[in-house]
């Protein structure tokens, strides 16, 4: 089962290596790992997508919580959350084919030169997969880079209130 773990980490040299090492040493299967600064200059947010059963993930979260530099850690999988991933891709195809994909998926064109378009797309992991598939059907993907998952909790909808759709 796929699990999404998010943690706030003290910005110390070697701390990312320590967290990654904790996972690697126990042979956990990490699909994606992103880390970036937060508004607090001392603190980074680390987001992990890892595969395993409930008991295994529970242990990972508990073991990670013991690390001195971990400020907060939580499993977002079961909670209301938003996942986004950024993709940059260099796509070789006639302009019309590229423009169709851009329009259909709401991707951005960053640069064009001849038949090569550099595009940017954001969506959840499945949507990024779909976008790449659509490109493959219409041309050649020369190169691409995915950023990995960034995720935050969505505000809980209080009981009795109506949900507001977000664009």
């Amino acid at each position: 089962m796929r699990h999404l773990v998010s943690m706030l980490l003290q910005n110390e040299a070697g701390e990312l290596a320590r967290v990654a090492g904790l996972f690697a040493a126990r042979g956990y299967n990490i699909e994606s790992l992103t880390v970036a600064a937060t508004p607090d200059v001392d603190v980074s947010r680390l987001t992990l997508v890892v595969f395993g059963d409930e008991a295994v993930i529970d242990q990972i979260v508990k073991q990670s919580a013991k690390l001195v530099d971990v400020i907060e850690i939580g499993e977002l999988t079961a909670r209301e959350h938003v996942e986004r991933e950024l993709l940059v891709v260099r796509f070789d195809a006639p302009e019309a084919a590229a423009d169709t994909c851009l329009a259909r998926f709401g991707a951005r064109l960053l640069h064009r030169s001849g038949t090569q378009s550099v595009m940017e797309y954001t969506g959840n992991a499945a949507e990024v997969d779909d976008f790449l598939d659509a490109l493959r059907q219409r041309g050649e993907i020369v190169d691409h880079a995915r950023s990995g998952i960034a995720a935050i909790e969505r505000p809980q909808i209080p009981a009795g209130a109506t949900a507001q759709a977000l664009l």
């Binding site: 040299a13 070697g14 290596a17 320590r18 090492g21 904790l22 040493a25 690390l67 001195v68 530099d69």
Partner: peptide, 16 residues
């Protein structure tokens, strides 16, 4: 040492 002891100790500090 900070890498080696990182997984062995409760915590490691490298004082730069």
């Amino acid at each position: 040492i900070s890498t080696i002891m990182g997984s062995c100790a409760k915590h490691v500090f490298l004082v730069t």
